[in-house]
Simulated scan of single mutants.
Amino acid sequence: MPSSRLSTLLGTTLRRQRELHGLTQRDLAERSGASQAAIARIEQGVRAPTVAMLERLLTALDLQLTVGVEPLDAQLDARIDALRGQTVAERIATLGLDRMLDRLGDLPYVLTGATAALLQGAPVPVDDLEIIVAWRDAERFAGWLERYYAQRWNPRWEEFGYLPADPREPGEHRWQVVGGVLRASMVDELPAAVEVRHADRSYRVVPLALVEVTEPATADLMRRWRTRHASSAD
């Protein structure tokens, strides 16, 4: 399933190995006989490769697939532990968060979810840039999505594309855009926000306490982080 942890892990592993071999996606496509578009989707985690496809891609890198098992969500715990070893500034840089926000320009928004939690010091993994946008700005937002070639998440096909990108059209408010994946909550009025500052930049975010109440997925990550922090402190 393209949105699964395993799909993301396979895509990240393939990209890292390709880059370690000094190859572009086009180079790997020529070596493996796969299309560059297919490789891009696998690396982005939006398409789960078949075993045969994965073996073909790895063979082109002089690698082979091995299979193992580990405790459930061990990879998630490893991501949290890695983030704990970074400063907030390092986490922001790793995500390329500022570049993504620069592209939003003057669109009114507030950061929420795991993005807001990370900016407020919580070492939680961020897979999508999460923002809140008011419905009155939907037309501006639609224009922005068009300008940045947004492809909307299609749950039927479990990949991005084949749906109108306009947030006023039916569908999930999640898009693949230049620079990453964006998830938006559309509301009548933007919530009260606090301003946090890192280096020379300010970020308008939903307060952490409110994030934990309104964002169940982020609340789960926060509980997981606190549990691990408490266990390591013992």
Score class of each variant (00 low, 15 high):
residue 173 H to A: 12
residue 173 H to L: 11
residue 25 Q to W: 04
residue 221 L to F: 10
residue 203 Y to S: 01
residue 118 L to C: 12
residue 55 E to I: 06
residue 83 L to F: 04
residue 186 M to N: 02
residue 217 A to W: 13
residue 223 R to D: 15
residue 225 W to R: 04
residue 151 Q to N: 13
residue 200 D to R: 11
residue 90 E to K: 05
residue 100 M to A: 10
residue 64 Q to H: 14
residue 181 V to Q: 03
residue 170 P to C: 09
residue 18 R to K: 08
residue 6 L to G: 08
residue 190 L to C: 11
residue 44 Q to Y: 10
residue 19 E to Q: 15
residue 234 D to V: 15
residue 90 E to S: 05
residue 206 V to L: 14
residue 160 F to R: 01
residue 180 G to I: 04
residue 205 V to S: 01
residue 121 G to Y: 06
residue 204 R to H: 13
residue 188 D to A: 08
residue 144 W to F: 14
residue 198 H to G: 05
residue 95 L to F: 05
residue 231 S to A: 15
residue 192 A to S: 10
residue 165 A to R: 00
residue 138 A to T: 09
residue 26 R to C: 06
residue 220 D to Q: 12
residue 192 A to L: 08
residue 120 Q to Y: 06
residue 97 L to H: 01
residue 118 L to T: 07
residue 182 L to T: 00
residue 20 L to W: 09
residue 129 L to S: 02
residue 37 A to H: 11
residue 24 T to I: 09
residue 217 A to E: 15
residue 24 T to F: 07
residue 51 V to W: 08
residue 115 T to N: 00
residue 21 H to C: 14
residue 184 A to Y: 00
residue 154 N to T: 14
residue 178 V to D: 14
residue 219 A to Q: 12
residue 209 A to K: 14
residue 154 N to L: 14
residue 123 P to F: 03
residue 53 M to F: 06
residue 225 W to L: 08
residue 101 L to I: 08
residue 121 G to L: 07
residue 102 D to C: 05
residue 31 R to M: 06
residue 190 L to R: 04
residue 150 A to Q: 02
residue 166 D to Y: 04
residue 119 L to D: 00
residue 181 V to R: 02
residue 111 L to V: 03
residue 103 R to C: 06
residue 187 V to Q: 11
residue 217 A to V: 14
residue 201 R to Q: 11
residue 73 D to T: 12
residue 40 A to D: 08
residue 46 V to H: 04
residue 133 V to P: 00
residue 143 G to S: 10
residue 170 P to V: 07
residue 202 S to R: 10
residue 90 E to L: 04
residue 213 V to R: 15
residue 152 R to A: 02
residue 38 A to E: 11
